Amino acid sequence: MNQNIQSIIASVALSTMALLGSMSTASAQSPDEDLQTFKGGLVDMAADIKELELAVLYPDADQLAVYLSIDAADTFNVTAITLMVDGEKVHSALYTEYQQDALRRGGVDRVFLGDVEVGEHQIIAYISGTDARGRKTKRGVATTFIKAADANAIELKVGVDTSSNRPTFVATEL
Rank of each mutant, 00 (worst) to 15 (best):
Q6L: 11
L52G: 02
G159V: 02
S30M: 04
V170C: 13
R105W: 10
V90Y: 00
D131T: 09
Y126H: 14
V116D: 02
D34A: 08
D44N: 05
V90Q: 01
D62K: 05
S30I: 05
M23K: 12
E88T: 10
E155R: 07
R104W: 02
N165H: 14
K50T: 15
I5T: 09
D44E: 05
G40Y: 08
D101R: 11
T82K: 11
A102S: 13
T137N: 03
K136A: 11
L52H: 04
S30Y: 04
S30A: 09
D44I: 02
M1Q: 08
D109H: 05
G107M: 09
A132T: 03
M45V: 06
D131P: 07
L174H: 06
Y58N: 06
Q100T: 06
A142D: 05
Q100F: 01
H121R: 04
A55E: 08
V141E: 03
S128E: 09
Y126N: 06
Q3V: 11
V90L: 03
L35N: 13
M45H: 06
L103A: 04
A13E: 07
I123E: 00
T82I: 13
A132N: 11
I146W: 03
T25Y: 07
P31S: 15
V116K: 03
P31D: 10
K157D: 02
I8A: 05
V141I: 11
L52W: 04
Q122E: 14
A132G: 10
V90D: 00
R105E: 12
A102D: 06
D150Y: 14
G134K: 10
G114Y: 01
M45P: 02
Q122P: 03
Q100G: 06
A28M: 10
N165K: 15
F169W: 03
V160W: 02
L42K: 09
V111A: 00
M23A: 15
E97S: 09
D150W: 11
A65D: 10
V170T: 15
L20K: 15
Y126C: 05
T172H: 08
S22A: 12
V160Y: 02
A132F: 07
L83T: 04
A125E: 00
T162K: 15
V108D: 08
A73W: 00
I124D: 01
L174C: 10
L14Y: 12
A132M: 13
S163V: 04
M1V: 13
L103E: 01
P59D: 02
I146K: 08
F112M: 02
L54S: 11
L94V: 14
D74M: 12
H91D: 07
R105C: 12
V116M: 03
S24E: 08
S163N: 12
F145L: 03
S7M: 07
